[in-house]
């Protein structure tokens, strides 16, 4: 599977993040090295408090690392100023959160159109794009519903559509199924996989949902702020099968 010609889309180098809480210093990330190829579906797995979300925030440019660097498309994020960072967040990365983070007073369509507004897309074009995306995630009939009028799975699908609004190269999903039941969680996972397959979007998903493993290209296991191991899907398939079997 190791193909030398594949280009990296995300690379991290000695990534360290410390949180200062009063007198104690909490080391959430202790030197993470991670290379992610374009078009890959990566799952970052690990128990709670292992640093998944912190890593996710670093990669997404939502927080600054204490030391180390993150490269997106070979660009060092630390070198970017606020405007460039905003450009990156707007067009290169799409975010999906565990708690959806839709803007509560806006309708599904308005939520999806918002990133295109920030990208300076003309209004008509943005709305057209928003409708197209919502149709794609199967919410074509719920365009004008507020988030509170939608179920959890529907809200997360709106969030997926929003993440795709500006055709990003990367989708960062932080526990996208964390607040969903098994069935709707499965739907979201299928949706992400479909996007990955059909549109060639790189999907990086922090999760502890084992169903994710089934469809991931690679799984990054994180424990205690460090990469424990990185596995290809073929290597873990058997084990997942066992676990799913156990669940049933």
């Amino acid at each position: 599977m190791a193909n030398e010609k594949r280009e990296y889309v995300v690379r991290t180098k000695d990534l360290v993040k410390e949180f200062v809480m009063g007198d104690t210093v909490l080391r959430a990330l202790k030197g993470i090295q991670l290379d992610i190829y374009r078009g890959e579906y990566i799952s970052i797995m690990g128990p709670s408090g292992s640093g998944k979300s912190t890593l996710f925030n670093m990669v997404g440019g939502l927080d600054k690392p204490t030391s180390g660097t993150v490269f997106i498309n070979d660009v060092d994020m630390a070198q970017l100023d606020a405007q460039e960072l905003a450009y990156l967040r707007c067009r290169t990365i799409g975010y999906i959160f565990q708690s959806f983070n839709l803007i509560p007073v806006m309708t599904a369509l308005e939520n999806v159109v918002l990133p295109t507004v920030f990208a300076g897309v003309p209004q008509d074009e943005g709305i057209e794009r928003g409708i197209e995306l919502l149709n794609m995630v199967g919410l074509g009939d719920r365009l004008h519903h507020k988030p509170t009028e939608l179920s959890g799975g529907q809200q997360q699908r709106v969030a997926c559509a929003r993440a795709l609004a500006n055709n990003p190269a990367i989708i960062l999903a932080d526990e996208p199924t964390g607040n969903l039941d098994l069935k709707t969680g499965k739907e979201i996972i299928d949706l992400l996989k479909r996007l990955n397959k059909e549109q060639g979007v790189t999907v990086i998903s922090a999760t502890h949902d084992l169903k994710m493993i089934d469809i991931s290209d690679r799984i990054v296991w994180i424990r205690d702020g460090q990469v424990e191991r990185i596995e290809d899907r073929e290597d873990v398939e058997l084990r997942v099968g066992v676990m799913e079997h156990e669940e049933e």
Partner: peptide, 29 residues
């Protein structure tokens, strides 16, 4: 890493015109 050349690939997000901000804030209100 060839940072300099690659950095050019990232554009600068431009400030939206005032009219747009006015529209959005009116709508929000």
């Amino acid at each position: 890493m060839p940072n300099g050349s690659a950095k050019a690939a990232v554009g600068r997000q431009t400030q939206l015109p005032f009219r747009r901000a006015l529209e959005i804030s009116l709508k929000s209100l």
